[in-house]
């Protein structure tokens, strides 16, 4: 799954199905990394629904994934107001194949403490293997900013995990 995302060259989707197969997954991962499983997942659902409804316009943009990510951010923002305690990823210990779940949960708890943009950049680059350029387009920042976010985020994670261990 991850290997496919890393090796396949990404191109602008020609139609909505192509977007769902490629860009929508990137958007969902980014929104979940940014807002957590619950809010990010709901926001991704709503944003993709909007994209389907207005694909005639969204499909013409240079990077539909970045556009839909913005829609997802707009959808997620109102939910944040009414969540006193935001749970991101650490409240689930569901089994995963070929994964050291306790170690992954532990790491995700540490990732939760990063700033949203830093967290998103670290997850998208380090966990999913997206390029700096792709993440920069998604977050609306430059590649050097993404590089800084990843570098500082990883450093913070290292510190957090060392203290915890």
């Amino acid at each position: 799954m991850i290997a496919d995302d890393l090796t396949e060259p990404r191109r602008a989707p020609k139609d909505f199905d192509a977007f769902v197969a490629d860009g929508a997954r990137r958007v969902r991962r980014a929104l979940v990394a940014f807002y957590g499983l619950e809010i990010g997942g709901d926001a991704a659902d709503e944003a993709i629904a909007v994209a389907w409804e207005k694909w005639a316009v969204v499909g013409l943009t240079d990077d539909p994934a970045a556009y839909v990510f913005r829609i997802g951010q707009s959808k997620a923002r109102p939910h944040l107001r009414w969540r006193a305690r935001r749970t991101l990823f650490s409240d689930t210990g569901a089994p995963s194949a070929n994964v050291d779940v306790p170690a992954a949960v532990d790491l995700l708890r540490a990732i939760e403490r990063l700033r949203p943009q830093q967290r998103t950049a670290v997850i998208l680059v380090k966990s999913y293997g997206y390029s700096h350029r792709e993440v920069a387009a998604l977050l609306g920042v430059s590649e050097s900013v993404v590089n800084n976010l990843v570098h500082r985020g990883v450093s913070t994670l290292r510190t957090l995990l060392e203290v915890r261990s």
């Binding site: 799954m1 990823f89 194949a97 992954a104 995700l108 380090k126 966990s127 999913y128």
Partner: peptide
Amino acid sequence: LLVEAGEHLDDLIDA
């Protein structure tokens, strides 16, 4: 660990 965390996160998303 980060790659594994990504896989785990995908599993959580799919679930």
